[in-house]
Simulated scan of single mutants.
Amino acid sequence: MIANFDADRALRLARQTLEIEAEAVSALAGRLTPAFTTAVEMILGCTGRVVVSGIGKSGHIGRKVAATLASTGTPSFFVHPAEASHGDLGMITRDDVLIAFSNSGETAELLAIIPIVKRIGAGLISITGNAESNLAKLSNAHLDGAVAQEACPLNLAPTASTTAALALGDALAVAVLDARGFGEDDFARSHPGGALGRKLLTHVRDVMRTGNAVPAVRESTPLAQALMEITRKGMAMTAVVDPDGRAVGVFTDGDLRRLLETPRDWKTVPIGEVMHRNPHTVHLDKLAVEAVQIMETNRINQLLVVDDDGHLAGALHIHDLTRAKVI
Rank of each mutant, 00 (worst) to 15 (best):
A213Y: 00
G197I: 11
T37L: 13
F77M: 05
I230Q: 01
V25A: 07
Q149V: 04
K199D: 06
D88P: 10
I120H: 00
L284N: 09
A226C: 15
C152A: 00
I271T: 11
V51E: 07
P115V: 04
H311E: 13
A67F: 09
A195Q: 13
M228N: 13
I120P: 07
F251Q: 11
A84L: 03
E106S: 00
I43W: 12
G145K: 01
L89K: 09
E19Q: 12
T322A: 14
H191T: 11
H311Y: 07
A39R: 04
A122T: 07
H142R: 04
A313G: 10
S85G: 12
A291P: 00
V51K: 01
T252H: 11
S126P: 08
N130S: 07
A141V: 12
R119W: 08
R31V: 01
F77E: 00
H311S: 06
V305E: 02
C152W: 12
L32C: 13
A224S: 11
Q225G: 13
I99V: 11
K267C: 10
T72M: 00
L44Y: 01
T159F: 07
V40C: 10
V40M: 04
A66F: 01
K325G: 06
P263A: 00
R198Q: 13
A10I: 07
A213P: 00
G314T: 00
D186W: 13
L18C: 09
L312F: 08
A108V: 07
G193P: 03
T128L: 10
A27Y: 02
A7I: 15
G30E: 03
T322H: 00
P215I: 03
Q149C: 06
S58H: 07
S161M: 07
G314Y: 09
A315T: 06
D6I: 04
R189S: 09
M237V: 14
T162V: 10
G129Q: 06
K137W: 04
